Computed example of a mutant assay.
Amino acid sequence: MSIYVVRPFEGREPGMSPTLKWGLGALVGLPLMCCGCGGMWFRGQFPHEEALARVVNHRQVVQTLGAPVSGSFFFSGKTQARGEAAVAEMEIALSGSKQDGVLQVKAVQTSKVWGFSRLRVMARDGKMVDVVGGF
């Protein structure tokens, strides 16, 4: 019968293990990355939430995609901001009980208020619903 003594830190320099370093890096880095992007969103730099609020209960959108309609938290597009003015173009994935679609957004922000020049839903089957002016 042999007895082995395990010394986990023998031969290593004192300090944190690589696993612990990666774990701490993720715990610190991930919130910083999210707050960097999310902070802009919460300051009103993106019209994402307001655009979805206008679309998810729109009668024609609900008929086309099927109730309930929900939008993705993530989006693609671009935004440019200067002071309190901003311009945004984005696409947000939508899903409904019948089919999925994409919300196309063009918006301009002045005095911290977003105005939409385009809120258009393109359904997977090719049907288009123009929401601007029909809320």
Rank of each mutant, 00 (worst) to 15 (best):
V129P: 03
I3T: 14
A81F: 01
S111V: 05
Q63W: 01
V55L: 02
M1Y: 07
V132R: 11
E89F: 07
K127T: 14
R120G: 01
E49T: 14
R43S: 15
G83P: 01
K112H: 12
Y4L: 12
M128V: 15
S72Q: 08
V6M: 09
G77W: 00
L24T: 04
P18N: 06
W22R: 14
S2Q: 14
F73L: 08
V132E: 08
A81I: 08
L52P: 00
L24N: 03
V129H: 03
L32I: 09
K21H: 05
V28F: 11
K112N: 11
G96T: 02
P68H: 07
D125N: 14
C37V: 15
M40A: 13
A123M: 08
L32R: 02
R59F: 05
F46W: 09
V56K: 09
H58A: 04
V132I: 08
E91A: 12
G134T: 15
G44I: 02
M90L: 11
F42D: 05
G115M: 06
W22V: 14
W22G: 09
F116E: 00
D125W: 02
G15Y: 06
M122W: 03
T79G: 14
V61Q: 01
Q99F: 01
M16V: 05
A107L: 00
L119N: 06
T79P: 00
E13D: 09
G44N: 05
G71P: 04
T79D: 02
L20V: 12
A53F: 08
S76I: 10
E49N: 13
Q60T: 02
D125V: 02
I3E: 12
Q60R: 13
C35N: 08
V132D: 01
W41D: 12
V62G: 04
F9M: 14
T64H: 00
T19E: 10
F42E: 06
F135G: 15
A26N: 02
L52D: 00
S97G: 04
V102S: 08
Q45R: 11
L30K: 04
M1P: 08
W41A: 14
S117L: 07
L20S: 10
E91M: 08
G134F: 10
A85W: 00
A85V: 04
C35T: 08
F74K: 09
V28S: 03
G38L: 09
V28A: 15
E84W: 09
I3N: 13
R118H: 09
G96P: 00
G126Q: 05
G44D: 02
P47R: 07
R120Y: 06
L65G: 00
A26H: 07
V56M: 06
G134H: 15
V132H: 03
M33W: 10
K106D: 03
K112Y: 09
M16K: 13
A93K: 12
R54A: 08
S76K: 13
I3V: 13
R120F: 01
Q45F: 07
A81M: 03
V102M: 10
